[in-house]
Design a binder for these strands. Sequence first.
DNA 1: AAGATTTTCAACCGCTCTCGT
DNA 2: CACGAGAGCGGTTGAAAATCT
Length: 341
Amino acid sequence: MVSCDDMQEGLGNKTGHQCCSKRKVKRGLWSPDEDEKLIKYITTHGHGSWSSVPKLAGLQRCGKSCRLRWINYLRPDLKRGSFTAQEESIIVEIHRMLGNRWAQIAKHLPGRTDNEVKNFWNSCIKKKLIAQGLDPKTHNLLSNNYIHNNNNNACKLISHQYSHQQTTSTFTVDSQINDISMDMKAPLIPFPTIPPVPDTNPPYPPLLHKFSSISTCEYQNPNTLAFLESGSKSSIGSVPVSSSTSHPSEFGMLDESCMWAGGYELIQSIKSEKEQPELQVETIEKTNELIGAGQNMVASFETSTFDFDFVESTLLPCGMYYNPSPIVQPAWNSWALQEKK
DNA sequence: AAGATTTTCAACCGCTCTCGT
DNA sequence: CACGAGAGCGGTTGAAAATCT
């Protein structure tokens, strides 16, 4: 990490750092004293231009290093400690959609940084997926060649677990897929029959379908992807709602199902959370903001606590409330007719 | 108990993106 | 439109900590 230049001047001292070419900068681990200076400066003045922070804060660091230290370690809103199982599943789910876009993934985990998510992925989740016989890049099943030709611990673990993985996988969707040549972004399971179109006025019909491949479907939807990329607020506590956010009108009838499925998954997640006594369930702080309805309807939620009854009575209907586009209306009607028979 | 090996994670690097001029 | 500066991102490194032998 420390170059030859650095070694000549003691730990981490170097001239010619790219972003601070005129200053001698210290590198390497931050001392408590440096942390204190940075915290004091930013809490008093804000960071402003990062390149000017070191000088103003009295630090012999480059601005980039200050920024990183603040964002990844000193920021007061950071959540420290181990990742929860729920956070882990969110990471896996979003990674399946977006790949190694750590900053985007981190935006769905309040208090976590991209660096933290990336480290957690590389040190933990990746191994778990491999142990389950899943390729961490594609989330598809690993080939037998991969499993048997790689002589590392994870792969040894696979050879032990592989025969059970079809039924024990935590991540249900891709474990059903046997064609490893399939592109990761392609739909992995057949789309289910379209559920009935809801009436535009309450009361709304119950959700009839639950799918296991929501994110895979959603990946097809460029608006949803754009939404995720934009880093929009999208969690209720740690329950991701991105899968219930896409307006179907521009993507054909299949996305209509996905939106329903997403809504259902969301509510199920909340329900299962509510059964955990340690979960704090209080009041909604901000919810169901519908953005750009008709084009890219997005339900935006930002809260760490919520009222369950409100969620059930309001969010679910919100998730389903839309005017079906002319494209999908006939399909919905046709489905409804079949159901009546 | 001690050395070797592996794992974790803070920090850095180099690149791209964005924005102002 | 071109350019430069700063911000932000993902990949990578390597010291420290944890685990193994």
